[in-house]
Design a binder for these strands. Structure first.
Lengths: 216, 216, 216, 216
DNA sequence: TATGAATGAGACTTCATTCAT
DNA sequence: CATGAATGAAGTCTCATTCAT
């Protein structure tokens, strides 16, 4: 259903061209980084799995770290994509009449995204604590940009009376925790046969809707 | 307020004795593992920070990995402590009349625990994806034991009508996500001056109580 | 008379190619292993003597032991060479009419061989007791193959009436002891000026011929 | 039949006293040295097998090498014992009328000796090539002393007409090779069930007697 | 562009030896 | 006498990176 090489959808910033060798390198690196972590992965291992000479890696990436960044950075860009919709206000007005619909759309969208990029996501989450560069990019791209957009959304639904009167950052935090927990359970923790996605998604949404609803 | 060496409360399984050098090794290791991750930490760095010869580390721990495990394993034991309360039923009956009170007590308790063990907790969370041994211990100790206890609690409050009728594991998941998100925000993400603990805790509790409450 | 680098005649199994650095590594290793023994030789010492970086050794040989085996194993193959003569029967019929001639040819041949390979031989003899892999190879290649051939020879001369009627393995043992002792004295024990090779060889041969001759 | 701790017969130079710990150290060292070789044996391994603390070894022996020497040196003294018989001339005249009887007695005697000291003998043979001190002692004690005595014996039997007219050192060499080969086969090479000691001994003796006999 | 041999710093680990107890 | 924690030099081996081909 999802083709193997759709990593490229996420990694290529649309302009860049990759040689076949380079693609093999990235594919191999993503796989091993995800499994063993950046620090525990050797370039020779990547080269072997990619079927290229060790030197070839360094022809494309000056250092091992540059390889990591070249993998993770575009991932971040893609993560914020759905929030960068030009006119999010209009979107809100028209498309998602209710908070519930909005949440459902949002979660489904990110699930699809993650399904295509579990390994990349793993790497991001696992390496974030160890690399300042990543943290910087993360704060700048993800945290700041997403938060800015989400604040609008939150206020929108607060004005509509769907969300309790509470600082938007707290709403955001509770919202993020719930979504993140949902996705972790789905992708990393629970075996697929113990996870009924439709039902769990509804539970998550109801939990959020009720948890954030105004008192009374 | 919190003494430096209370790591020992957690690590020593009450019986073991540590030589002074050994304590210095563990203290140093905890600090660097937490900061840079296990794989990126060298034993020579640990030795230097601990002020001992590198060989001394290997007199106490046969391998670097054994050092890691000796640090993380007891941590897990301590994490489940509050759930191993002998008579959790009675506790529920008497002490925590309302779900709200129970949640408040639980969160506060884990906050205090984490405040004393942020570094250890960091190491656990960061290394869990990379070490099968840890995953095994984690599943066995934390997941299984905590879940068993929590299921009772959930059913208790479901019978009381405080929690919606939903599979206990889903309640548990939503509950964990929220708590985990709360603690992450508190300890790792938000700068202390942007965090009003009293208020955020209340928000988290209200969110949980409402989110899990029965419909209508 | 014998060039330095004829080790290659023995080591290379005719197909393999060695880089110049690899040759230097082997040359150095042979020298030091022979002098100090495998266990007492450090890879850094080999690297220094070979004029290469220590890492280079491990690019060609995964472990120090692999280096040892790569040195000793081909040596064994060469040791059995003269016994693998296709048609040893015809050789016996035609070339070596008398046991004496056969012995003389054999000893001389092995002397020449050893003269070219004293160091390799030393290593083999010195390390054999300590390495199961070597013992295995030794039994398989040397012991079994040589013995099989020699048994024919022994029976041949027994039928001719030159060797006493005795189990071939006992003849073989006495024969080997004498040759081995001869070679040890010649190469390892006695200083060259105390050793008149022509005369000693004749003594050894006469000793063998008479010692193995039928009674009466 | 032979008690375990008869090493002491050989090691103690009759005067020395050994504490129980010291005995355990030596017993352990002998065992491991024989199996793995001196260089590949660690003092910690010895200590563990001996059931003493590592420091204890160095209380008795300043260095690891001193331990080795203290084990091997007395062994050499014992090896020459039968040759130091005060009045070897008289022995020759009376006890051993024939060369054959002399050889039989000698071989049997050394067999008994070796049977009690295989491990010590192994260590001696294995370590001799690597330690100058041992070589020095060996030349001085064994080679020189034994040879001096044996020369007398050889000349005695040459005068009697039992041994061919040949430089005594050559006789000695052939004699030693044969005996050494016999003992090696018996103790290190052949499995006991393939070795009929009585018969092999006779074969060895006949081989020697005939091999060394005068022509015609 | 791609290779892979070579590097040398540094990783983890072992070891003989010392010394306070 | 005996211990065993401590040492630091040295051991084997890995690694990211370079460079001639």
């Amino acid at each position: 259903m999802f083709e193997q090489n759709q990593i490229w959808d996420e990694l290529s910033l649309d302009e860049e061209e990759f040689t076949p060798k380079q693609k093999k390198i990235i594919t191999a690196a993503v796989e091993i980084f995800a499994e063993k972590g950046y620090a525990a992965t050797s370039t020779s291992e990547i080269a072997k799995k990619a079927g290229v000479a060790e030197g070839t890696i360094f022809r494309h990436y000056r250092t091992k770290k540059e390889l990591l960044l070249s993998i993770v950075a575009p991932m971040m860009a893609k993560m914020i994509a759905p929030f960068v919709i030009k006119d999010i206000n209009r979107v809100l007005d028209k498309n998602y009449d209710s908070l519930e619909d909005f949440l459902r759309a949002m979660i489904k969208n990110r699930e699809v995204f993650l399904e295509k990029n579990i390994q990349l996501f793993r790497i991001l989450v696992q390496e974030l604590p160890f690399h300042q560069e990543l943290q910087g990019q993360f704060k700048e791209h993800i945290a700041a940009k997403i938060y800015t957009r989400m604040e609008k959304v939150v206020r929108h639904y607060q004005e509509k009376g769907d969300i309790i009167d509470m600082p938007p950052e707290s709403v955001f935090r509770l919202f993020l925790s719930t979504i993140f927990g949902h996705l972790m359970a789905r992708f990393f923790i629970l075996p697929p046969d113990q996870w009924d996605d439709e039902k769990e998604m509804e539970r998550t949404i109801q939990f959020l809707v009720k948890g954030l609803s105004p008192n009374e």
